[in-house]
């Protein structure tokens, strides 16, 4: 019986996947462009991608937009950092208190079932208008993701690693830093990525609904005043920022994992 051994190196398939992905993206953009140019979609509703890109570049050189960008990004950054820190600390604490964890579990399980924006008016009433309720909503949207990921990560540390640490007579701190943290890292990273996404979504949506500044508000304002160029330009910028920041975290993650020989 003749057996053919597939000798194609593993990288090549991964590379083909990546290239196909970019190809499809490009194709979709080109299709949209063609559909707009040929009048298949109403010109009033959808701008062709080339014009959207041009509008985005033009917008990013105006002072007004840059102020909005800085406002939104700093709000997201604060909400994200605070939520990752709190989520991690709460996760570690809750992992050490099984009874409390069992009691809180149903709350965590249905947390994301509640559309968090229903709390927005309450936050505005408590914290006033401005960046504070936005920060709060981004924070509240992101904390449980990090908390759940931390719990999962700690759950999945193999008991044998803890035993090895004990065998080597490691102290509490060095066990945590040298053994447990690295073992829980994949889940922690998942939590960090989700926290960033949720903080971003929370802040932008908050600005969209009720706010007087930031990117979300600028998009809503452009929509209300039929300014399609500004609207699409800003929209593209927001979407690109989300995708790129997520992509950066992902590539950092896979680099770390590769270094540890996990991938």
């Amino acid at each position: 019986m003749k057996r053919t051994i597939v000798t194609r190196p593993a990288m090549s398939r991964a590379r083909r996947v990546v290239w196909t992905r970019w190809g499809i993206t490009l194709l979709l953009v080109l299709l949209l462009e063609a559909a707009c140019r040929l009048g298949f979609v109403p010109k009033l509703a959808v701008l062709p991608p080339s014009e959207v890109i041009a509008a985005m570049v033009a917008l990013l050189s105006t002072q007004e937009v840059l102020t909005n960008v800085a406002e939104t990004f700093s709000t997201v950054a604060i909400a994200f950092t605070a939520s990752v820190l709190t989520g991690f600390v709460l996760g570690v604490a809750l992992h050490g208190a099984p009874r409390l964890r069992r009691a809180i579990d149903p709350l965590l399980a249905s947390y994301y079932a509640v559309p968090i924006f229903v709390f927005y008016p309450l936050l505005v009433a408590l914290l006033g208008l401005g960046a504070l309720p936005l920060m709060a909503i981004g924070y509240l949207a992101a904390v449980p993701a990090m908390l759940i990921a931390t719990l999962l990560g700690l759950d999945r540390v193999p008991p044998v690693l803890r035993r090895v640490a004990r065998m080597h007579r490691l102290g509490r701190v060095s066990t945590a830093v040298l053994v447990i943290l690295p073992a829980a890292l994949p889940n922690l990273f998942q939590g960090i990525k989700l926290s960033l996404a949720y903080a971003f979504i929370g802040v932008i949506a908050g600005e969209f609904i009720l706010s007087s500044g930031g990117l979300g508000y600028a998009i809503a304002f452009a929509y209300d005043s039929f300014d399609n160029r500004t609207m699409y330009g800003l929209m593209l910028f927001v979407l690109l920022s989300a995708v790129i920041s997520n992509g950066l975290l992902s590539s950092w993650e896979s680099r770390l994992q590769r270094r540890r020989g996990l991938q």
Partner: peptide
Amino acid sequence: VAEPMLTSLYTIPKVTLYPVILLL
């Protein structure tokens, strides 16, 4: 090919797409 594309779709703030949906 599709999985990471779907994941990034999952993480974008879809509220921003609302005007497009309304226009369409």
